[in-house]
Write a protein that binds this DNA or RNA. Sequence first.
RNA 1: CGGAGUGUAGCUCAGCCUGGUAGAGCACCGUCUUCGGGAGGCGGGGGCCGGAGGUUCAAAUCCUCUCACUCCGACCA
Length: 437
Amino acid sequence: MRLSDYFLPTLREDPAEAQIVSHRLMLRAGLVRQASAGIYSWLPLGLRVLRKVEQIVREEQDAAGAQELLMPTIQSADLWQESGRYDGYGKEMLRIIDRHDREMLYGPTNEELITDIFRQTIRSYKDLSKILYHIQWKFRDEVRPRFGVMRGREFLMKDAYSFDLDYESARRSYNRMFVSYLRTFARMGLQAIPMQADTGPIGGDLSHEFIILADTGESEVYCHKDYLTYDALSEVATDDSDLASTVEKWTSLYAATDEKHDAAQAGELGESLISARGIEVGHIFYFGTKYSKAMGATVTGPDGDDLFPEMGSYGIGVSRLVGAIIEAYHDDDGIIWPDSVAPFSVGVINLRTGDADCDAACEDIVQKLEAAGQDVLYDDRDERAGAKFAKMDLIGLPWQVIVGPRGLKNGVIELKRRATGDREELSVESALSKLCA
RNA sequence: CGGAGUGUAGCUCAGCCUGGUAGAGCACCGUCUUCGGGAGGCGGGGGCCGGAGGUUCAAAUCCUCUCACUCCGACCA
């Protein structure tokens, strides 16, 4: 992609409304634009990141045995009246009346709808267990949206729902999601810590929040410092005992959010206790038969009896993750994308657009990188070097290939790693082989 | 939902107190000189000052209402 053609409206100054660093950088780097309070348009660069995050979530859900479907954003109030939540959910639910005076709503979550789909289709215990998920926009009419996409009213969420015949099996589904969440966040470069959490209005008695430590986090959290050194990517549990032992390992040390914090218990950790602020990027619940009973979802059991399936739900804030990743990876110059979610893998900077040698060298490099499957953003604009460096640092692509007349005279170009700032002068060939390794 | 603010050019802001018909920097367009970390000169375009009503000879400025947005707190899968 040529930067001269690309729709990338960056800002040189900080927008007045943005308080936290991720919000400022998302606006400045041209990722999003605010449409109204807590509602954002995703511009091309931001959408690329959102899609990358979404895809990692999808791959890990699939790997955990969950199956993707897609439910609508607009739901009928009827289902919510059945579950009893239509009145209980409160003003956070955006209610809509259609032309026939039917009560509709913009879904804040999907337990009712998925339970309805389940009861219409699954009849036998033999069809269990099932984990179904979708990645869909949600709307919660927050009283006070803030922090950009971190606490928007409209947000993209992955929500999965499990259906099992008994507690033991439900617990296995829970564990599967638990381990898959560890892997999902780790692939994005985030150290997410599972913490005991309140189950809130959604109900149930087993729940973990996945929290990333960050100064701008909304909640106060406490945990054992050893969590920071755990490696989630090595967790590839597939069978029951592996799952259970992984979950055991990740839940045995103290970790709790404010609501569940036990000062006495935490005090025993002494200097191993970390007290920090955290961003919630995922939340998993086991809630048993709450919805299956309320909505009459049953399967026929081995003895011919009607049985209520045991359920759980599992959420990941996909759009929030984009902000959370920036909170974790930035410096004074801009964003520093982890390779796995970067909107482009390489930025090629032509320091002297119009110079025949520079142009030819850049065209050649871009063509070869793209042929090797790299996503390349080529800054071919007629701008000064400083402006190009500043913009490339701001948008935070992992690698920069810097091509200028000075280096070309000596047969070299420069390869810069955004995260460390390290630069090395290389021949075009060795730079290419390094990038495509 | 309580409390506090802010709405003036694409962005950051000045002007408002003390009414006299709108400014700066950056961005944008043209041009010249520049050219390895957001250069400089010259010229140019762009705003019914959030909206409605009122006071006045005259309102960005004073008054009333309203809308939007932001911040602190409460709330919050």
